[in-house]
Each structure stands twice: as structure tokens, then as C-alpha cells.
């Protein structure tokens, strides 16, 4: 005789993964348009280069699949992680070096996870290592049109995504749409996203008011930061597990990101802060669980 939960809520982990895929689709399409079709229509690239924006997501999926087979893991979550990361890289990333570096990083992190049970955000760490593949070429997020400074964009264009950034990280508008899509899933950790956004925006706004320096205002519209808050920060396995600790976690990540941005003006600030704060997840869980264990 065994206890069972015969009845189960209609959604599960697979539904959450599907929601992530669904939320990434608009960003992939916009990436193909902005870095491929749009440039081709303006005679800036040839027909072959139209597909480069799709090469990175596809090669990432293939790499994740191979790593999953090697480590005998379920491929679905690794493929999702790879796809999320692929949209953060620059169009200038070296095509050949990228899959090699990605494969190496995935393998090292999988091996580390097997050896060290320490929780950390592996997406953020992977993304930080991927800077290596960008350094092989020029460290730049500008596509050919942006390098030539061919178009004049207004604030609305920037909000819609017509400015420099990672393949899928430029459009704040689409990132907001993605967040809304994900928020419909009960298991998506939107607490973390909202608190990290507040933790990021408030210090920047305060700094603008205190220093009267409006040149830092564009940081508020930095899609790269919000992309990492929406997709990399509330990852499936490396987050705290109570509502309060999720909020604290998000606030710390947002705050650290704003500090790095304000002091070092560093584009990949959010990945650094996600990785650093994720190292404290066990501590946050311990503090959150203290009240349960004391009662």
C-alpha cells in the first residue's frame, strides 16, 4: 500500500521549459531581422550573412545536446540554457571559436557540478567565460550598420531594440513581452525578476538625482541587463527557494549590477553580479529556513 498524489496540477517543469522557449521566440525572430534581414535589405551584408544571427542559437543547441549525451543528462534543460546564452553573445563572436569554447565551458561546469555540490548560477558563469570567444575578434557589440553609424535612432527605436547589444538582448520592449509570457506560468520566479529590476533601477535613478548626471540615464534602458534578469537569473535550479529569499536575492543582484555599471561602466555587469550573488544561495536558504527550524 503506498501513498500517491494521483491528481496533479496541470502544469509541471516541462511546461515551464516550454514557456521559456515561447518567450525566446520573439527575441530570436527580432535578432534574425535586426542582424540579418535588415542589414541585407540595406545592402550591408551578403545573402550568406543573413543566417549568421541564427547560427549561434543553432550551434549552441547542438553543443548542449552533445554535452547532455556525454554526461547522460536530460537534454531539454541544457538546450534551453544554451539557447538563452546564445542570444546574449555579440554578432562579432568568432564562429569557429564559439562552439569550441561553449563545449569546453559546458563540460567543465558539468564536471564541477558533479564534484562540488555548491550551488551557483552556471548560466552566468558560462556567459562570463564566453567573453573569451568574443575577445578573439574585436570586443564589440556593434553590428555592421552600427559600426558605420548609418542610422539615426530615437529613444523609441532604442526601446524597440535598434541599438547595439547581444543578439537577442537589445529590445527592451520584447524582453518585457517575454517577461509577460513567462509570468503566466505559476512556476516562473517573477519575484526575483521584479526585485532585481528594482534593485538595479532605484540606485541608478538616485544617482542621477544626487549627481545631476543624466548621462547615465541610458543604463536604465539597457536590454542586456533586463535580459539577464528575465532569463538567466530565475534559472530552474540555482535560486533560493522561499519567496522572501528570492526577493532578497533579486535585490542584491540588481544592486550589485547597478554598482558595477555606475563605477566600472561594464556591459556584462549583470552576469558578474548574478554569478557572485548566486554563490550565497545556500546562505540565503539557510537564513530563510532558520525560522522553520526554530519554531
Amino acid at each position: 500500500m503506498s501513498k500517491i498524489p494521483y491528481l496533479h496540477y496541470s502544469k509541471d517543469t516541462n511546461n515551464l521549459i516550454k514557456s521559456f522557449y515561447l518567450a525566446l521566440i520573439p527575441l530570436i525572430i527580432f535578432n534574425f531581422y535586426k542582424n540579418g534581414l535588415y542589414l541585407y535589405n540595406n545592402n550591408l551584408i551578403n545573402i550568406f550573412h543573413i543566417f549568421i544571427p541564427l547560427y549561434f542559437p543553432l550551434i549552441s543547441i547542438l553543443t548542449a545536446y552533445i554535452v547532455s549525451k556525454i554526461f547522460k543528462e536530460e537534454a531539454d534543460i541544457n538546450i534551453l540554457n544554451a539557447l538563452i546564452i546564445s542570444l546574449t553573445v555579440s554578432i562579432n563572436t568568432n564562429y569557429l571559436v564559439y562552439p569550441i569554447v561553449l563545449f569546453a565551458i559546458f563540460s567543465i561546469i558539468k564536471y564541477l557540478k558533479l564534484k562540488i555540490p555548491q550551488v551557483f548560477n552556471e548560466l552566468a558563469l558560462t556567459r562570463l567565460f564566453l567573453i573569451l570567444s568574443l575577445l578573439i575578434n574585436a570586443y564589440s557589440y556593434l553590428n555592421i550598420a552600427e559600426k558605420l553609424n548609418k542610422f539615426n535612432y530615437n529613444s523609441l527605436d532604442i526601446f524597440l531594440g535598434y541599438h547595439s547589444g547581444g543578439l537577442g538582448t537589445t529590445s527592451l520592449f520584447l524582453i518585457i513581452i517575454s517577461f509577460i509570457i513567462l509570468s503566466f506560468n505559476k512556476f516562473y520566479k517573477k519575484n526575483i525578476v521584479i526585485s532585481s529590476t528594482l534593485g538595479y533601477i532605484i540606485p541608478i535613478i538616485l544617482t542621477i538625482f544626487i549627481s545631476n548626471n543624466s548621462s547615465i540615464l541610458p543604463y536604465i534602458l539597457n536590454g542586456h541587463t533586463y535580459y539577464s534578469f528575465v532569463f538567466l537569473l530565475p534559472t530552474l535550479y540555482s535560486t533560493p527557494n522561499t519567496s522572501k529569499s528570492m526577493i532578497i536575492y533579486g535585490l542584491f543582484v540588481g544592486f550589485l549590477t547597478s554598482l558595477i555599471v555606475l563605477f566600472f561602466n561594464y556591459y556584462e555587469a549583470s552576469y558578474i553580479s548574478i554569478f557572485i550573488i548566486s554563490l550565497f544561495i545556500p546562505l540565503l536558504n539557510k537564513l530563510a529556513n532558520k525560522k522553520y527550524l526554530q519554531n
Binding site: 517543469t13 512556476f187 530552474l236 535550479y237 527550524l293
Partner: peptide, 28 residues
């Protein structure tokens, strides 16, 4: 069973505010 995704829904839904994730702790 799959790996826990730390969504915290088990804690949120518990009508008597138990943390199911701590059930491996014998004292708890």
C-alpha cells in the same frame, strides 16, 4: 520524480505553513 526547481510553490500552498523542502531534516 525530477529535480526540485526551487519554485517555492510547495511552501506557498501549504495550509499549515510547513516547509516540505526541509523534511529531510530529522529534527524538523
Amino acid at each position: 520524480e525530477k529535480a526540485c526547481i526551487h519554485c517555492g510553490q510547495c511552501l506557498n500552498i501549504c495550509p499549515v505553513n510547513i516547509n516540505p523542502l526541509l523534511l529531510s531534516n530529522a529534527k524538523y
